[in-house]
Design a protein around this nucleic acid. Sequence first.
RNA 1: GGAUGAUUAGCUCAGUUGGUUAGAGCGUUGCAUUGACAUUGCAAAGGUCAGUGGUUCGAAUCCACUAUCGUCCACCA
Length: 759
Amino acid sequence: MDKAYNHKDVEEKLYQMWEEKGFFKPEINPNGEPYTIILPPPNANGDLHFGHAMFVIEDILIRYHRMKGLAALWLPGTDHAGTETQFVFEKRLQSEGKSRFDFSREELYKMIWEYVSENRGGIENQLRRLGFSLDWSREKFTLDSDIVAIVKETFRKMNDDGLVYRDYRLVNYCTRDGTSFSDLEVLHEERVDPLYYVKYGPLVLATTRPETKFGDTAVAVNPNDTRYQKYIGQDIEIKTVLGKATIKVIADDYVDPEFGTGVVKMTPAHDFNDFEVGKRHNLEMKQVIGFDGKMNHYAGKFEGLYVKQARKAVVEEMQEKGLIEKIDEKYAHRVGVCYKCKTVLEPLPLEQWYIKVTPLIENAEKALDAEFVNIYPQSFEHTLRQWYAGLRDWNISRQNVWGIQIPVWYEVEDESKFAITFLDKEKQLQQGTLQYILQRGHSWEEILNGLQKVIADISATAVFEDQKKENKRYLPETDTFDTWFSSGQWPYVTLKTSKVGDFEKFYPTSVMETGYDILRAWVSRMLILGLYVANGKHVTEPTVLKQTVPFKDVVLHGLVNDPLGKKMSKSKGNVVNPLQVADEYGADAVRFALVYGTGLGNDQAMSYGKLDAAKKFANKVWNIARFIEMKKQENPGFTFASISLSELASENASDQEWIVKVGKLVEEINKHLDSYQFNLAAERLYEFVWHEFADKYIEDVKNRIDAQSFLLLSSLFMIQLKLLHPFMPFITEEISQKLGGDGSIMISEWPQIVSSKKK
RNA sequence: GGAUGAUUAGCUCAGUUGGUUAGAGCGUUGCAUUGACAUUGCAAAGGUCAGUGGUUCGAAUCCACUAUCGUCCACCA
């Protein structure tokens, strides 16, 4: 054996060996109880980062249970990550001087598919580099056709169960990416903007968005505000930049008399609160900003200006006309921005598909109450419940191409009720109502061939493919599902489509391990959707819930920050690549360092000190092995042994003590792993192997070693190697091979918990 | 505004049913050894466990309040 452990000589070789021999498959323990973890699917187009490296926790669990004889399945997969991937791809297009508007849906989808396929292998190989014992023969992708079919079927089932509806309401819309987002995806940023005090006839009101005044359909005051009683219910005459107008004054509790002047303009088509007030008072929705982010015809001479430009122009003109009383330049507030491109999101009214969440949440909460699902650390259960409690219906429509198309067709009755965008046969972008497009002589085929987007009026009849009638014309829904709608069914769809019998055997899964940062976005959705799809109904008995939860335990790890404790981000330029670190320190050291010294669910700063310590520890383990090998070579009579604890015995009092100590160690490691206290397990192993076994036992036995004590020494060491294996798979395997262990340590039997017997 | 986490050695952090002198890594100091390992060994210094009050025979650990920092969520034009 070399004097120092060199990870570069062994990692690739061993991983290949494991994979080739089929050790990653649950079939390696054909008679074992099932133990399942579904890998949180990384973005198919992304690179491995430290968040993925934390999946080492899953590998520890899987390797531990595999060695315990369970049929351990760790199922890998990748996510198409709709918005993210399309965003990246569109940036590429942009660098080539193109945009998504140059292609039909089908062309664009095909291009992204090819792009993703080219890059998809990257992340998989990176996961291999860290030694993750994933069953690659069962790998899935969210856009595999069998998965797409199930996701669509779920939607249909929900529809039949009355859990799905289409509605026309405000959405968070990014005019740059051209899609809406769920509330959860909206990022809020602190901004300092001017607050304009605008004269509305006899009233003055404060607004940050004077350009939306063209969409005002009322002015509101608080019903108890004595100042404005006489105006309530009246139509007042106001002067605007587009001439005189009248506007209704309404009273609503929503208005805070303390803020501004106590008067608020109501723009139901462009403000979430105003939309709600508008529903209560039956206000007209007047959309003055288009999905392109520009003012439309309602803005009169300001038509065609972007929102920002329009605001400036409108304010200037209002000032000229004396319509602005004053401006508070330093008004601090928060605005919603796109989490990808940071564009200010525009609340816009749009027809979208929604899922009723209340009936679904009910079962999720029941499952939590009954502890069919347990969350570690437990405090996160509160977070999850709170989120459920305040949840509004889920908008699952995304105006992306890259995703699973919502499987719905709209019956075309009134052609004026369809707004469409398509590329004509000359590859020119055309848009307008269907009526207008057809009048201009474009054929039905031409439209469908180059189709980009269809917006059907809320009154349109929607049907599924097989419900289409021969004598009718239909336009497809062009929106795709929110990515979380498909990934929310991940444990179910993967096991349903991997191998025959997998679902029956491996569902519910044992553990869902992921970062706490996606507890709400993902874990919460998996729980509600998993319960729904697996039990086939949306109201069930507890016994059924227990069998249909997607996972029994949720284990949440924290974030890995940069060495200074700051969040890693590309824009800050402080991202550390885990694979580079693995090159330098070895995969085992990276794995160990990530687990050591951080409580579950806590964030950690990436620490070179810990990496050093872990690497040195690996070397220590290596040198214990080297010592054993040397003794064996020096003494031809010595034989290397791997005797189990219960069989070990010695007449030497000190030896006996060590048998007991190692026995206790096994118990402790079991206890820590069973309770997801990976840091304690790692710390205990580090402490014991190094400062007990090496520093004390070996120092003691060194000078009195004989054939008998060598048996004990090597056996006790093998036990520790096995305990270490889930944490440091490569070096433990390499040592075990070098010392002549029979077979692979990876599939060897986990040390039995048997306190040593004294002879 | 709501929720949540943190505050322990110079630095980064462990410490899950409350129990003897509070631990680790890195750093610091002294000594030893080229004999499995200098990616070493032995030893040492360094902490009123944020503060105050409470529960208890006993509190870093439980409770209340306060302070500071962080994270998430909501959001008033």
